[in-house]
Simulated assay, not measured.
Amino acid sequence: MLQVENLTKRFSGFVAVNRISFALEQGEILGLIGPNGSGKSTTFNMIAGLLKPSEGSIRLEGREIGGLAPIEICHSGVGRTFQIPRPFKQLTILDNVITAAFYGQRGSVTRAKALDQAEEALTLVGLPTDPQAEVASLGAAGLKKLELARAIATQPRLLLADESLGGLDETEMNAAADMLGHIRREKNITIIWVEHIMGVLMRVVDRAIVLDHGEKIFEGLPREVARDPRVIEIYLGSEKITFDEAAS
């Protein structure tokens, strides 16, 4: 479904991502992980269109999308969440998601169809479809769910989930991971999940890619990640507890 070849991003003389290649099959959940500064967000943002690649190719179902504007990539079938949710606070929860439905489909859907799609997305993530429910009523976990609902409402075939666990406690993190698995099953959506919290992510992904200093250092099955010496070295210290969870 997605083919990334020799993807590179330079900022002046600094190489943030260096010739990364990978393929993604339809229906997979791929974990893109690594410590802070590893290049995972830069890679993610090139796929989503927020950054233009310095070199390399990004093909979605055979079509080159590298360097296209974010709205063009969205209309090609790629939805994304942001690490820090920024909903329209003056709109209700439902209207936030309806707006996303219009955006993702070039405004070509009717109000009734956008409403149906918004209600479906909110139900999938466990948020109220009450037209009076306000964004101000949501806590950190609720805002993450709203961000996910907005992405789903754009009707993507490929969903890019950006650090969906940030700011959540352990129970909320487990629930968020289970939710992504549920969305994949219900909507048959392919997912790339960018994350640095390793243990929870490994419960859900089919395959993982580990980045470090802008380079791919590992690609394989979740159970293999925890046995790789270089990955172990990177994740020692503050990530040791979550790494041990992944190893088990």
Rank of each mutant, 00 (worst) to 15 (best):
G126D: 02
M202K: 11
E245F: 06
D130G: 10
T42L: 04
Q155W: 00
G237C: 02
A175R: 09
A101G: 08
E219M: 03
A226W: 04
K89I: 14
K40S: 04
E64Y: 02
F243W: 04
K144F: 06
G13N: 03
A48K: 08
E28D: 01
L124I: 07
G214H: 10
P53R: 02
I20W: 03
S164Y: 07
T43C: 14
T171C: 00
Q155K: 12
H213V: 00
I47S: 03
I209L: 15
A140R: 05
Q132F: 08
F218Y: 12
L127C: 03
P229D: 04
L159N: 00
F22A: 05
L91G: 12
R223A: 15
I209Y: 06
V194K: 10
L50C: 09
T110S: 15
A121K: 01
Q90A: 14
G79L: 03
C74F: 10
P222R: 09
A176E: 15
Q3V: 14
P222H: 10
I93T: 07
S41W: 05
H213C: 04
P70T: 06
I58E: 02
S248M: 12
R185A: 14
A151K: 13
V194A: 14
G39M: 02
G62C: 06
G67N: 14
L127D: 03
K187S: 06
K89W: 15
G142A: 13
M202L: 15
V204S: 01
M202T: 14
G13T: 04
R150Q: 15
E163T: 12
M198A: 14
A151C: 09
I98F: 05
M46N: 03
G142M: 14
L180V: 06
L148D: 09
A48M: 08
M1E: 04
S108N: 03
E186Y: 00
V15K: 08
V17F: 09
E72F: 11
H75Y: 11
A247S: 13
G166Q: 09
R185G: 00
L165R: 01
T99V: 11
G220C: 08
L127Y: 10
L124H: 02
S54A: 08
A208Y: 12
V231C: 01
A121I: 00
D162K: 15
T129N: 12
I71V: 13
E120A: 11
R157T: 06
S164E: 03
S248N: 12
D162N: 13
L94C: 05
S12F: 08
A246T: 02
Q3M: 05
P35D: 00
T190P: 12
R223P: 09
K145P: 12
K9Q: 05
P85H: 02
T110M: 07
A16F: 09
V17P: 02
S76G: 10
I197P: 01
K144D: 14
G79W: 05
I189S: 10
I65R: 07
K187N: 04
F44R: 03
I58P: 03
I183T: 07
G49I: 06
